[in-house]
Design a protein around this nucleic acid. Sequence first.
DNA 1: GTTGAGCGTT
Length: 304
Amino acid sequence: MTEYVPVSEGELDEPIELPTEEDGSLLLSTVSAQFAGACGLKYRASGRLRGVRLVDERLSPPAEGWPAHRYWCAFPRIDPPPPRPRCSDLIVLGLPWKTGEEAVREYFGAFGELLMVQVKRDARTGLSKGFGFIKFAEYEAQVRALGRRHMIDGRWCDVRIPNGKEGAAAAHRKVFVGRCTESLTADDLREYFAAFGQVTDVFVPRPFRAFSFVTFLDPEVARSLCGQDHIIKGVSVNISSASPKRAGGAGGSGGGASVGGATAGAGAGSGARAGWPTLGWAPDAWPLPPTHLPIDSKPYLKYE
DNA sequence: GTTGAGCGTT
């Protein structure tokens, strides 16, 4: 004969009485009819949690019978969070000559715990080369630091994922934006494309050329945009995948894709980059002529 | 006028 088993969704919820079968078992389908997604039952016996035996979709009563306890549902484990992306070394470009590791550590320490800080120096003279490397403990800190510019000791600095192995992956996060007009600033592009995903870099060649590069944090965002035409400030631009930079000259070893924040250019031919529009700074005001900069914060020029 | 700046003594 049918008896009724009190079952609730969670331990503290109000039970619903569910009918058993002729053989005294409770069908899992009877449970899931009331509690969608339930995959079993549990109860408490002398303070400890116990599971109800389940064979072939039938839940068997405990030895002491159904009425001895009240029951609640077991649900499948929610999907385990995907493994966190790991932190990579990050290059910090454009450091003032005077800036040492202490200042870099103090500045980026505000973004999260730092595992490594280096300022690269000339072996002979000990003078800073104007760049360094950092590594965060937490990926979230890395994300916070990428894709915006950083004012360190009076100069705007860029944080990017270094070239090389990591840089090759950056190629998949970057799109080529063709048919740009001169009216489209790096900030315009960053603001527009931020709607599709976090933008970590915008590059607009200077002097003007009719293209730009936009790098996203998520390669899937970049991929999804390829092949599309978009209208930005009335300009129809075409988006395609960014092909690797051509090797050649110093340092180019194949895929020189870069990722990172904005850049204060130093010489003719440098590009314009934009950071977070919300910061409200004006990239078109850059690069400042070196003579307008404090003596201790001239633009980064290798070997100068 | 459709492909980019600079990248690590180990």
